[in-house]
Structures are given as structure tokens and as C-alpha cells.
Write a protein that binds this DNA or RNA. Structure first.
Lengths: 226, 226
DNA sequence: CGCATGGTTCGATCCTAGTCGAAGTATTAT
DNA sequence: ATAATACTTCGACTAGGATCGAACCATGCG
């Protein structure tokens, strides 16, 4: 009989298949309506509504009503990080591990994590930033490095527009596929925005996969990885 | 209807109060018997046995039989990291947050995480190591830094005896209370061993709290933090 | 050998929680 | 206004699973 944070309460929220599907869908970063999430979870509207109310009440989801739509999104990056951690053990502890299909390979290479890029490409990018003193890492805090301002100006990212108020500009986020960190935070989000705006890659509409076009990948690599 | 790692399966394992209590107890790092865990969870022996079988089957726990005892422990550091992540959101998303009592304060300052030290002291230690080039951090990988071998020889830790075979010597582990990383891996475990062997601190028998004696704290700080 | 101790299996009980149909509320469209 | 859409609430049904007592294996001890 120990106390400590009430781990069972929130784990049981994630522990239902319908809710897990919804959360997985929301890992894409977009806010989705109740109907969309019901469809995503393969469950009726009343059921979905009940689930969503529970998760919002439990602090996992944030909601915002717009007209007759109600949008749900993950309550914050911390929730996303937790889900990635759970995926990590589900991956290794999983009993089957039968289908490392092509879809899976794409997921490992580049995908959306909440609002930023994750996967092998993202991990390589953060490593490069640190190695070139563009960012400085200390613990899980990541700060702008000496070479940072010039680099991002070159790369077309305006640091002054980042909403660095309440939210840290940079943050480390543990990657379930590679099990190393990638860049989260406002800066991570801005880089993903740039990639999509430049049409270097597009999001798979049915999953979190981010698919680079061949020339897009080259542009991305010369801009952010070289 | 998405696929991806079967997150609901393992989250539901953590989502039961009895099982959550057992897992929390095992976060102390020690292997415990079925009876001890039953007591810890406040549940009968048959019930506990059933829970333990499920968790072992699900890949969360490892078991080893010794005579008529059966010992259970967390399956690995990855499971511990996941539990810490869940504690993190339970902490912030928690509805009540009523009791930041003294017990809680001790937990935040120094506690055991699987087999190494966690909490404010541990985070400060890792920060210091990186700042003084004792360790070098790159992503979540932590490697020995230039000043490392001399420092640890001085501090009475024999690096050559670390079982650095399958297990990485150093690793970052996210701290739920401070939300920054502390040092895990074989080196982290060795440092905790040292602290306890020197009697600088002792473990609270009923929790994960690590309690420094006043002179012990000074010794720890001059050895590892100064 | 018994006999005690640590654990598991079985069976029965009970209750929580997921599910959906139908009816109710709010907001936009016509 | 009426109608249609998006969602919530209510009520009833059901299934899964947590729980424990009792009986059943296994190991260690005298």
C-alpha cells in the first residue's frame, strides 16, 4: 500500500482499446472532433463521447468547442511523451512482433510526434545541431547555441516569431523507435511547419507517417543536416 | 482503427490498482517475492499470483525462482522509464494534488529509480558531470568524458569492474519530479551502491526515499557535486 | 518420511465499466 | 419558423475481470 502519483488512474485511461486508438490518433498533433475520433476508434458516438469526457476529466485531453463541433487534442507534450514511452515497451515487450512492414519502416524514419518531427531523421537532426553548436544541451533542457541564430536565419526560420512565452522553445522528447531524443518544443514545431510548407514532405493522411519527396529529402538534408 | 504498438494491452496492465502498487514497489529496484508483493498491493495471495503471471506474460516483469521463493523484478530499465513517464503526467494531470507532505518532499530530493539515484540531487549530479566534462552527452547517449577516468578513480569507483557488456554504462533517465534527466545505467547503479556502502545515506525501508545523513550529504556533495 | 511454508490453479461470486439505442440539447442551415 | 447536424445524457444489457476460499503442487526442514 504505497502512495505516490496515482499511476493506475491514468494508466487505466490509456488501457482501453477504444481510448488508446483515440490517443494514438491524436498523437498526429491535430485536434479532432468527437465524430472523427469515434470513427478512428471503431466505436459508436455515445461511447466515444463518454470516453472523451473521461480522458478530458482525467487531464489527458484538452477540449475546445467551436460552434457545434468539439475539438479534442492531447493536453500537452508531456502526455505525448508518456504515450511514446508506452509505445516503446509495447514494441519490445510485445508478444508477437509479426509485421515490420513497409508502413512500419516509414514510421521509424519520419513521423509526426504531437506537433514536431520524430523518427530517425529527427534524431539525426538534433544530434547534428548539438554537434555543430547550433543548440546546446544540458540535461533535457535545450538552449540556443552560439551558432544558432545565424543558422536558423539562414534556414528560413524566424526565431523572434516563436511563441516562447509559456512554452519552452526547445525540449527533448524520447523517440520510441530509435530510443534517443529528438527536438520538441516551439522550435521543433516550427521546423516541421517549414518542411511541410516547403512541400519537402507531406503527411500521410491515414497515419503519422511523414513522407519526403526525393528532392525534398535532399533539400531537408542540405538545410538541416549538412 | 489504427495499428502501431499495442499500447492498450500494456497500459491496461498498469491500469489496475493492485498491479500499479506492485510496479511502484518494484521501482525500488529490488526483486520481491510474490507474498511481499501481495502485501504491498493489499491483496490476497491468489490474486497477486494471477496479477504477477499476467505482468510477466505481458513482458513487464522478469521472474526467477530460487528454491520455494519466486522473485519478481521489472523487466528492464525501459519499463522503469515508462513508469516514471506515467508518474509525470499523473503528477500534473492529477485532480487533487492535496498532499505535498514531507514524504513527498523527500521523494523529490533523492529516491531510488530502479537501481540508481533519482530526484533533485541526481539531476544536479548529472548536470555537474556534463559541465565538468566528466561525462559527455549526445542525445540520450552518455559517454565518458575527458575528465571522467581520473574523476571516478578519485571518487572510488572502479570503472573497469562495471559490467559494461550488454548494458550501456551510462544512460539518461527522465525524472518525473524535476522533469529533467538523471544518470542511469551501470555507472548510475555503481554510484548509488557507493553512496549506500559508505553509509552516506540509507534507504527508507517503506518507500523509495533515500535519506542522507547530514555528514553523508556533505561527503556526497564534495565527492560528486563540487 | 511427515509437516510446514510459498505459490499456483480452480470455481464461484460480484461488480465495474464498455457498449449501444433512443431521447434530449445546442448550434447552424434553409 | 423548421430542419438538419453535432454531440451528450439516460437506461438497459452484457462481458470481462478482480477477488477470495479451498484444494492442489513444490520445496525445504526436522
Amino acid at each position: 500500500m504505497r502512495e505516490g502519483p496515482d499511476i493506475a488512474r491514468i494508466a487505466s485511461l490509456v488501457g482501453d482499446p477504444a481510448r488508446a486508438n483515440m490517443l494514438t490518433a491524436l498523437m498526429g498533433g491535430a485536434a479532432l472532433t468527437a465524430s472523427e475520433l469515434a470513427l478512428e476508434a471503431g466505436v459508436g458516438l455515445p461511447t466515444a463521447s463518454s470516453h472523451l469526457a473521461k480522458m478530458a476529466d482525467g487531464g489527458l485531453l484538452a477540449q475546445s468547442s467551436q460552434g457545434r463541433h468539439r475539438y479534442f487534442r492531447l493536453a500537452g507534450p508531456q502526455v505525448a511523451a508518456m504515450l511514446e514511452a508506452i509505445m516503446g515497451v509495447a514494441e519490445t515487450a510485445g508478444p508477437k512482433r509479426v509485421r515490420p512492414g513497409p508502413r512500419d519502416a516509414s514510421m521509424r524514419e519520419a513521423r509526426v510526434c504531437y506537433d514536431h518531427l520524430a523518427g530517425g531523421q529527427a534524431v539525426a537532426m538534433l544530434d547534428g545541431f548539438v554537434a555543430r553548436a547550433i543548440l546546446a544541451r544540458d540535461g533535457d533542457e535545450i538552449a540556443m547555441g552560439g551558432a544558432g541564430p545565424a543558422f536558423f536565419a539562414d534556414a528560413g526560420i524566424d526565431l523572434s516569431t516563436l511563441p516562447g512565452k509559456r512554452r519552452p522553445v526547445c525540449r527533448a522528447c524520447l523517440d520510441w523507435s530509435v530510443r534517443r531524443s529528438h527536438l520538441a518544443g516551439a522550435l521543433g514545431a516550427a521546423i516541421l511547419d517549414r518542411i511541410l510548407a516547403e512541400k519537402w514532405a507531406r503527411r500521410d493522411p491515414d497515419s503519422r507517417v511523414v513522407r519526403f519527396t526525393p528532392p525534398g529529402r535532399r533539400s531537408f538534408e542540405t538545410t538541416f543536416l549538412s
